[in-house]
Amino acid sequence: MSLLEIKNVSKIYGNLHALDNVSLNVDAGEWVAIMGPSGSGKSTMMNIIGCMDKPSRGEVLLDGKDISKESAKRLTEIRRDKIGLIFQQFHLVNYLTAVENVMVAQYYHSLPDEKEALEALERVGLADRAKHLPSQLSGGEQQRVCIARALINHPELILADEPTGNLDEANEGIVLELFRLLHREGTTLIVVTHDPEVADVAQRTIVLDHGKLSREIVNENFHD
């Protein structure tokens, strides 16, 4: 069953077609990578899927409901309830500890629960760094806090924008291993990347070029 359906979506800025009649289906539990060079429309696609932007034309169905014409307030609620975001630059609140950063997502979603937030940090291997501030953590550790924060509210979809873009090879491996684990547990993953190695570990790769869907590659060798 499709968790996400994008039907003939275009995003137009003046004369520029950032996305041009793109259609895509992502099933629940699927791991999809979106690739493409700079200016191909990856970020626009990510913003529309992440409820941070609306398409100029077309429909976006999340869980069977069209969200393309929802108000900004409603989109915020949908994003809070259904989507976990992971950013290339981590974006942690710099004056809150690792566990407090995870609890912020809980705070906006429902009720903060420190024990649950500590468990989420434990899952990403950071139980012993819970009381550290972001400035006391390495890039890889910060990204793992970001993943724990994205997971904490059990979202239906994890949307990661260049999640390994600022990481070294060792930390990239740790993050991809975490994605494998999440996928095995049935989490739907959409990873926007320009790194072929990151795309290669996904079940399916969508390639965008000049705002159009140019190719779709199914990973025959995919394994969790």
């Binding site: 609620e77 309830d81 974006h91 609140v93 912020v104 997502a105 906006y108 979603h109 924060r149």
Partner: peptide, 16 residues
């Protein structure tokens, strides 16, 4: 402003 953007991305309402 970046922190405000992050909080909004995490689902914070303007009122919050």
């Amino acid at each position: 402003r970046k922190e405000v953007g992050l909080r909004k991305a995490l689902g914070a309402s303007n009122g919050s």
